[in-house]
């Protein structure tokens, strides 16, 4: 259940683009066509799925205060957490390079479609952000870290796919000159972010207070029963 909760939470509620603005640079630069957006999105999912678990291991066994205990008791009070930025970015840069070589060797087809985007990804804030959020949210196990990487990648993928589709259509509409291109993309992203905020309601799924309120509502207004049923449905999914 933990897994499903984290999965939906990272896709919809903590969406990389709409809630934390990570990876905005490439999000804005590569979203002119759906086909390229799909390529970059897939590459981001792929790299996040690899780097987040690797950085989780690094964090757990090298960087955290007391993580070096496995080396012997005299290392137990070492705290290397100030090194985490440099370690994470080095891992990401190497992993991206490695992934590029491996994909080129074993899946040339995939390489041709992802290839040009892979080097770009090393400096995509979404990738480093994924690892840093993994660290600051103290994700407890490696499979959850993997899940977090994949699901936040999917969230980013959805966001760039949606904006690319909208931008392809918007070419045919009459946008005021100064807003054309970048300006309107910002404003649309803002509106989409407002839309995604409504998913925040999923968070109250396990909240007792919200549940109690719900019960009061059902008692008061039977005609709203349908809506509440919907809410309870999402609740049961969350649990």
């Amino acid at each position: 259940m933990e897994h499903i909760e984290l999965f939906f939470k990272s896709i919809f509620i903590d969406n990389m683009v709409f809630a934390t603005f990570l990876g905005m640079c490439s999000y804005l630069a590569v979203s002119k066509k759906v086909s390229t957006a799909v390529g970059l999105g897939a590459a981001v999912i792929f790299v996040l799925a690899v780097t987040v678990p690797v950085n989780w291991l690094l964090d757990q066994y090298i960087l955290q205060p007391g993580a070096l205990k496995w080396l012997g008791t005299e290392y137990a009070d070492f705290d290397l957490s100030f090194l985490s930025f440099i370690m994470f970015i080095a891992t990401i840069a190497t992993m991206v390079q490695l992934v590029e070589i491996i994909v080129e060797k074993f899946a040339p087809g995939l390489y041709n479609s992802l290839g040009i985007f892979l080097p770009l990804i090393a400096v995509n804030c979404a990738i480093l952000g994924g690892s840093l959020f993994m660290q600051s949210r103290e994700i407890p196990s490696i499979d959850l870290a993997f899940n977090y990487g994949v699901s936040s990648g999917i969230g980013w993928f959805l966001a760039i796919l949606a904006i690319a589709a909208i931008r392809e259509k918007i070419r045919y509409s009459k946008v005021p000159g100064p807003l054309r291109g970048l300006g309107i993309t910002f404003i649309i992203t803002g509106l989409m972010a407002i839309g995604f905020m409504s998913f925040g309601g999923m968070l109250t799924g396990g909240d007792d207070e919200a549940k109690a309120k719900e019960e009061v509502k059902t008692a008061e207004a039977p005609r709203k029963a349908n809506e509440n049923k919907l809410v309870t449905n999402t609740t049961s999914i969350n649990e």
Binding site: L179, F186, I187, A193
Partner: peptide, 10 residues
């Protein structure tokens, strides 16, 4: 809230 930052920059 987060979305307004985008709109202000826009």
């Amino acid at each position: 809230l987060a979305p307004m930052a985008l709109i202000v920059v826009g």
